[in-house]
């Protein structure tokens, strides 16, 4: 290289080093809060967690969160039972009729729906379900969570089903399979590992969803007798305790946060495992 080029290059090399350094600093800055949140949740949560936490219902000093834990599980199960089949069905339809105007419109609105603040989903469920049933209920909360899940599950299914090679669809059709059997037994089955993992991520997401529950499932100091009663959940309880000035309740909130974060992470790890189980061929 000529000396001019050489000196220009050393300048550019310096700039590149600087850019790499800056991006590394960005990574550190991004991970700092992660570490901080984690450290606090684990240390404060571990200190506060106890056997009563899991077996006693919400109450004064020494009480637990048993009914909130049950409530969260109840809502998430019910929401999954509604949201996952509907979402998979819709996603499969989007993929199998991918080029139709309906499919394109729905795909777009699902993406937009995924970006609508979840608290508005709560407002809608309040307007439709709570007002109609004249009370807050576990069912209303589950419906809100199901709506939050719906676009996530549908779009994941859609993406993965569209990634199934057409050669497999043709193979099935050439065997005289009808379109719906092809979709269910070939496309869905081939895309199943990814869809399962997508569903788990959607479940993980709604485990932490709080805003849509504030005025649907509401809250309850006791176990709810039926799905038509309001129910307490870990999420809402964390928020309620956050907003109090009481140290005991703060401790309870940390413990609940630990449980919640643990659930979310376990689901995330399982989802990733499922995805990594490579399909041979």
């Amino acid at each position: 290289m000529t000396p001019e080029l050489e000196s220009a290059y050393s300048g550019r090399k310096l700039a590149s080093r600087f850019a790499t350094g800056a991006s590394s600093v960005a990574v550190v800055l991004a991970l700092l809060p992660l570490v901080a949140v984690f450290a606090y949740v684990v240390s404060r949560g571990a200190r506060a967690i106890s056997i009563p936490f899991f077996v006693e219902p919400i109450g004064e000093r020494g009480a637990g969160m048993a009914n909130a834990i049950v409530g969260t599980i109840q809502l998430v199960f019910l929401a999954s039972a509604m949201g996952i089949p509907l979402g998979i069905m819709a996603g499969l339809y989007l993929a199998e009729y991918k080029a139709t105007r309906l499919a394109r419109a729905v795909r777009f609105s699902a993406d937009v729906l995924a970006g609508v603040p979840s608290i508005l989903v709560g407002v809608v469920v309040y307007a439709v379900v709570v007002v109609w049933m004249k009370q807050f209920s576990a069912f209303a909360g589950a419906a809100a969570l199901a709506i939050v899940m719906l676009p996530l599950v549908a779009r994941t299914t859609d993406e993965l089903a569209r990634a199934v090679p057409d050669s497999l669809r043709e193979a099935a059709l050439a065997l005289g399979a009808s379109r719906w059997r092809t979709a269910l037994f070939v496309v869905l089955r081939t895309a199943a590992p990814g869809i399962r993992s997508g569903c788990l991520l959607a479940v993980a997401r709604v485990c932490g969803e709080t805003a849509p529950l504030l005025f649907t499932a509401y809250n309850n100091r006791f176990y709810n007798d039926s799905l038509l009663d309001p129910t307490s959940t870990l999420q809402v309880q964390i928020f309620t305790y956050t907003m109090t000035p009481n140290d005991d309740w703060h401790a309870q909130a940390w413990a609940a946060a630990l449980v919640l974060v643990a659930i979310v992470i376990v689901l995330g790890v399982v989802a990733r495992r499922l995805l990594d189980e490579k399909v041979p061929g």
């Binding site: 992660l34 949140v37 964390i238 919640l260 974060v261």
Partner: peptide, 12 residues
């Protein structure tokens, strides 16, 4: 970082 629920960030 994205998986941690909003309400936990609120608590923290």
């Amino acid at each position: 970082l994205a998986a941690i629920p909003s309400v936990v960030y609120g608590l923290w």
